[in-house]
Amino acid sequence: MSSDFPSCLRLRLLKFLIQSTHQLQVSPIVKYSALSLFADRFCSSLYKFIQSNDTENWLLHPVTESNLQLFALVSIWISSKIHDSHPLSVKSLKSLGDGMIKEQHFMIRDFLEAEVALMQVLDFEVGTSNIAFKFLEDLLIQFKGVARVGKLVNFEACMDIMDLLYEKEETSTLYNSPRYLAASILVASYVITVPKQRWEFPVLPWGNTFVLKHP
């Protein structure tokens, strides 16, 4: 999943997305689904889309940083619609955008247009049931079921690792193998957050079985 942008721009955009999710106080599943839509999918298929479609959408001609910021906000919006029973309103996204996007003032209808454009770029592949965060959640529940020490694994640490991995393009390619990544993050978080004298569970073999059981 190589990104189509210079890595400094990509990093700024992801920082923008993550900050926005924190300001909007969305749940972790909304945050990581939005990251998956934007970082894993949108960023890597945008130029291919523009080349193979003679789209006249002004949001894609040219692709400016503020337009990309709009797409980042729309990723959060779509993700919230998928997961929340009371999704974020376009107004709340707009007022956040008004404050954070400096170069351009986007109207509500720009958000609506960007929503459809984003889904077109993704070829409507907006499913979020196979993302690393989902697998990580499942894995942690199972882990707590088989080992008491599972309670000591810090989920916040797992999420911090996920954020860190998005910082570099090389590490964010790991999101292409979400199940392996989820198992690795759990093990890393176990090592970091569980006190050494409590390492009583064979977490590596167990994690391996999980991955092998569902290749």
Binding site: V90, L112, M119
Partner: peptide, 9 residues
């Protein structure tokens, strides 16, 4: 104003 309905997405 709500764009594409969540149920459709």
């Amino acid at each position: 104003d709500d764009g594409v309905p969540g149920s459709v997405i």
